[in-house]
């Protein structure tokens, strides 16, 4: 039977009771133990896709597991053919999994995204010589091409200001984290970073983000999510030579 895999925990963690996983109806989550490691699994739905419901279930199961000890989250959608391959993998990678669990012990992931804001257009026109001259040009000789040039320069200025704020936010928050990982940033997103933060420092981290949000009001909005399972700090052990 196909098994959906949620994450790896220490074997000493009591198996979850009553946890509902992916699928409709939701499958019962159970753990498979191998020595001092355990892995949370459930029956895999016959047709697994990135359903909103299943994404939420994946997230909820990992969040619940993280309450009783460190958990190495699997990426969404990992399915294996029966129990044996999972247990074999756990045994083969035991030392690496234990090291990875030690790394995140007592920590949570905090994700911060900074999005560019356009509230400062008047400031940009005042302060950016290129935008100012292109604006004068567009007013003197209105036209499609002139407007495109002006708009492009404004968009670039908005992006520059946001990127600069993003760098400052990243620098400030890195000081509060044990580790930092930067993710992909689509256009309009000036920063997407995850921070490995000690559980005791979460309140301090939130306060720091709030202060930075005020400081950079004209350039970016900040969005902090967490505490989260340590998605970004769960390192897959190298495949054992077997």
């Amino acid at each position: 039977m196909s098994l959906y895999v949620y994450g790896v925990t220490r074997g000493s963690v009591p198996p979850p009771t009553g946890l509902r996983g992916v699928g409709a109806p939701a499958a019962q989550v159970r753990t498979l133990a191998a020595d001092d490691l355990a892995v949370a699994v459930s029956a895999a739905p016959a047709r697994l896709r990135a359903y909103r419901r299943d994404l939420q279930a994946h997230q909820d199961v990992l969040t619940a597991l993280a309450r009783s000890g460190p958990v190495l989250p699997m990426r969404f959608g990992v399915v294996t053919d029966g129990e044996e391959p999972v247990l074999a993998r756990l045994t083969a990678g035991r030392a690496d999994y234990l090291a990875a669990l030690d790394r995140i012990e007592g920590h949570v992931e905090m994700n911060v995204k900074a999005h560019a804001v356009e509230d400062g257009l008047a400031d940009i026109v005042r302060q950016d010589p290129r935008v100012r001259s292109l604006r004068q040009e567009a007013r003197r000789r209105p036209g499609y091409a002139a407007n495109i040039r002006l708009g492009e320069a404004v968009a670039a200025a908005v992006g520059r200001r946001a990127a600069q704020a993003g760098v400052e936010v990243l620098t400030a928050l890195t000081g509060l984290a044990t580790e930092t990982v930067r993710g992909t940033e689509p256009a309009g997103c000036a920063l997407n970073a995850s921070f490995l933060v000690a559980e005791g420092d979460v309140a301090r981290f939130h306060a720091a983000v709030a202060a930075l949000a005020v400081l950079h009001t004209g350039q970016v909005t900040l969005q902090v999510t967490g505490p989260l399972p340590c998605y970004s700090f769960a390192v897959a052990p190298a495949p054992a030579a077997a």
Binding site: L55, R75, F76, V79, H115, G183, T184, A213, T221
Partner: peptide
């Protein structure tokens, strides 16, 4: 005041759920 209000939290961390975390080559992924 300074942070955009959000309807939910799942989509704010969708990139983490989908792009981070452990992948084991030998296993199938959706």
């Amino acid at each position: 005041v300074v942070c955009a209000p959000r309807a939910g939290t799942l989509y704010d961390v969708l990139d983490l759920i989908l792009d981070r975390g452990i992948v084991i080559d030998a296993f199938v992924r959706v």
